[in-house]
Design a protein around this nucleic acid. Structure first.
Length: 553
RNA sequence: GGCGCAUUGGUGUAGUUGGUUAACACGCUGCCCUCUCAAGGCAGAGAUCACGGGUUCGAGUCCCGUAUGCGCUACCA
């Protein structure tokens, strides 16, 4: 063990004692049972979909219990930090409604970025050095890498433990020699080193979990040659969560293996253990097998993907809640948004995150959005990601509104849109600026109707067209047109005796549909007609007749 | 290699202290409705609950083993 004098020289003389921090961060004044939880994203890349999954669960739990939810940026790995990721995080938090309840201005439990909590970690590192629960390690990265290699070659357990822990029992003299030589060091935890011991803890989702106790002397504070000197995840967790008075640690399942380390750290630091809930990771189908949703391989692992494509946050969140607690999947959007999630209802196997399923949920979500909300959501998205569309919408607001309104008034909710980027292809037809005229009667979309007949139909339709206000009266025009050209006036009649007719009414309406919308599937024609107006309708239909005249001329 | 977690129809799940024909949603097939696509209505196919043992009068549900998948095993989180 090192002398107090030596230990003190390793730190700032003004560094506070633990008691300072503990009184500086008192427990929150909250009702009994209130949950305080945190989400700890690391700015080493984009925000992962699994992140908003855990965050939204945590926020829900905290709020329904009268507690608090906060975000703590876990930026202890400066080398891997990606510039711009904090800004991307902020936009994503806002979009997905997982913004922090607390921040450096409105709360005294901060700061909320680990890089700004350096002194707190130092206080506790010094404390562990003083109690002998930590020691200085001068092994270089190269030495450590070589050690790992040897351990693997011997098929032994990898890590810094037992006889492999070369700096564990360095004498004060050895330490001083190295320090005077200017060798950089890390501070390691002195684990109890009892391989035979088993530890047990209760996970709020999985129940009792038992495993071998930790024997690794993990790194607490990273290299002394770095500035700032930051902790590893393990040490930051063991210091921050008790001090920030967290009452529930919600994190990914990959941390289960580290629980023994964390329990040992709490014990050495004199902190009470905090209840854990380990969430199973979001999975993805990969051929016949499944694997963790991966940042590298899957677009949908990046939350930016949803913002860019224009998936409404409400739909994504609803899907995520359903994955967490399956009974939420059967609720309406309002119910699921307002209900309390439960840890015991969380599955233990990782749920499959299926984009196809999300799309279908999102279609329903957009279909049930009230007109104004749908329009606002569309506009917000378009202003950011499709300015041209935003401009067109703004010039034609009444029409844009009508598109959403008349679907809703009919009580039939078409589910054309899963995301706003589909608006152009699904509804662009309503806007002359976005609609390419169909002027070629031999366009394959008219099949099986022959080009000459297409022109006949277009001509007949345009010449006698009346902008009827009644749906049946309007469609009657197409029936008459069909009959005049020898087509069956109803699909049923055609089906019964196809040989008696030139074709079915559906062939005729398809011809008009292609002329008006350019699409083989569209909203019903009466609606299209009234949304684009008589003039525009005639312009589109006549495009076919004109092209024929010019060709034969 | 070591440690941990998981495994119910095509897919996602329910099945809370072991008890009759294993439930629901989506998907799929057929029919009806119908100007297209949806939506809607009706009917239907599809699971020896990963495999092998054991406990029990009785197991998807408890125990052991095997297989497969996933995770951890960094001065990454």
């Amino acid at each position: 063990m090192l002398t107090a004098e030596l230990i003190n020289t390793l730190f700032d003389a003004e560094l506070p004692e633990p008691s300072h921090w503990e009184s500086h961060y008192p427990p929150r004044d909250l009702p009994p049972g209130a949950i305080v939880t945190r989400f700890g994203p690391s700015p080493t890349g984009f925000l992962h979909t699994g992140g908003i999954y855990v965050a939204t669960l945590g926020k829900n739990l905290a709020h329904h219990s009268g507690g608090s939810y906060f975000i703590r940026i876990e930026d202890t790995d400066q080398a891997r930090e990606v510039p711009g990721s904090r800004e991307q995080f902020a936009r994503a938090f806002k979009y997905f409604d997982i913004e922090s309840d607390e921040n450096d201005l409105n709360s005294k439990w901060g700061p909320y970025e680990q890089s700004k909590r350096e002194r707190i970690y130092h206080t506790y590192a010094r404390e562990l050095l003083r109690s002998g629960d930590a020691y200085l390690c001068f092994c270089t990265r190269e030495e450590l890498a070589q050690m790992t290699e040897e351990q693997r070659a011997e098929k032994g357990q990898t890590g810094y433990y037992g006889s492999w822990a070369r700096c564990r029992n360095l004498s004060q003299a050895d330490v001083m020699t190295r320090l005077q030589a200017g060798k950089p060091y890390t501070i390691r935890f002195r684990s109890p080193d009892d391989p035979a011991k088993r530890v047990e803890f209760v996970d709020l989702i999985r129940g009792r979990i038992e495993q071998q106790d930790n024997v690794n002397d993990i790194v607490l504070l990273k290299g002394s040659d770095q500035s700032p000197r930051l902790p590893t995840y393990h040490f930051a967790h063991a210091v921050d969560d008790p001090l920030m008075r967290v009452t529930l640690v919600l994190r990914g399942e990959e941390w289960i293996s580290s629980v023994p380390v964390h329990l040992q750290l709490f014990n050495a630091l004199g902190f009470e253990p905090i209840p854990y809930a380990h969430i199973a990771p979001l999975m993805k189908f990969d051929g016949a097998s499944r694997r963790k949703l991966s940042k590298r391989k899957d677009n949908e692992a990046d939350v930016e993907f949803y913002m860019k494509s224009g998936y409404p946050a409400g739909a994504v969140l609803h899907y995520l809640r359903g994955l967490a607690n399956s009974r939420f999947a059967e609720m309406t959007f309002e119910e699921s948004a307002a209900s309390a999630l439960s840890l015991s209802d969380c599955g233990v196997a990782g749920p499959i995150f299926d984009l196809v399923k999300l799309e279908s949920i999102s279609r329903e979500f957009i279909a049930q959005l009230p007109t104004e909300e749908a329009l606002e959501s569309l506009l917000t998205w378009a202003r950011e990601y499709d300015p041209e569309l935003a401009a067109i919408l703004s010039r034609n607001l009444p029409l844009a509104r009508r598109i959403f309104t008349n679907e809703r008034q009919l009580g039939v909710q078409r589910k054309d849109l899963a995301k706003w980027e589909e608006f152009r292809t699904a509804y662009g037809l309503y806007f002359p600026e976005l609609f390419p005229l169909v002027s070629d009667p031999s366009d394959p979309r008219f099949a099986p109707v022959e080009p000459d007949m297409v022109v006949e139909l277009a001509k007949g339709f345009a010449d006698s067209y009346r902008h009827e206000e009644d749906k049946e009266a309007w469609f009657e025009q197409i029936r008459r047109l069909a009959a005049a050209q020898g087509f069956a006036p109803t699909a049923a009649q055609y089906k019964k005796n196809p040989e008696n007719f030139a074709g079915s009414i559906s062939h005729v309406s398809n011809a008009i549909r292609i002329a008006l919308t350019g699409l083989k599937q569209s909203p019903e024609l009466f609606l299209v007609a009234h949304n684009i107006g008589e003039e525009e309708l005639l312009r589109r239909v006549r495009a076919l007749t004109r092209s024929n005249e010019s060709r034969s001329a």
